[in-house]
């Protein structure tokens, strides 16, 4: 476990509660299967909220690790499509920042289990970013962020 990821877990205690891990080489998040994550004991299947929560948390930690965010980005909204039921096994998530402005980032997340080509869910989320440390200097560039500003 990298020092950066360990620090992210301290900032986001709920990530530790779910048991999320991160592979820095593959750039993938891992949610190891555990009995308390089950939402449907008959199938059995992971709780849909756990799948969503794993994906949202992955997006948050991705921004902390890779987009120079020192403080936890504030979630604005989260939208998930469930494609297959998530079975009682390990889950993986990959994040992609589709757009990052000065204030807003839009992150797309894919979650799968056995086969990366067959996702169990896809999600997208918007986050409010912390103002950059040198906010004064770059302020004139704000026009390039006009679209995201409307959403905030």
């Amino acid at each position: 476990m990298s020092a950066e990821f360990r620090q992210a877990l301290e900032q986001v205690p709920y990530a530790r509660f779910l048991g999320i891990d991160y592979d820095a080489t593959l750039r993938l998040f891992l949610l190891p299967f555990a009995e308390p994550l089950v939402g449907n004991a008959r199938l059995p299947a992971l709780h849909g909220g756990v799948v969503g929560g794993f994906m949202e948390t992955a997006a948050i930690i991705w921004l902390l690790l890779h987009e120079d965010q020192r403080r936890v980005p504030k979630p604005i909204d989260f939208s998930i499509d469930y494609l297959r039921s998530a079975r009682a096994r390990d889950s993986y998530a990959a994040c992609e920042v589709l757009r990052q402005g000065r204030r807003i980032a839009q992150v797309s997340v894919r979650c799968w289990q056995g086969d990366a080509a067959r996702p169990v869910a896809v999600a997208r989320a918007h986050f409010m970013l912390d103002a950059p440390a040198a906010a004064g200097a770059g302020d004139g560039a704000g026009v390039s962020d006009g679209a995201a500003g409307a959403g905030a």
């Binding site: 205690p13 909220g49 949202e56 948390t57 979630p75």
Partner: peptide, 10 residues
């Protein structure tokens, strides 16, 4: 965590 609210509403 906002994700706790995802789980609660779900």
């Amino acid at each position: 965590h906002t994700a706790v609210q995802i789980t609660l509403v779900d």
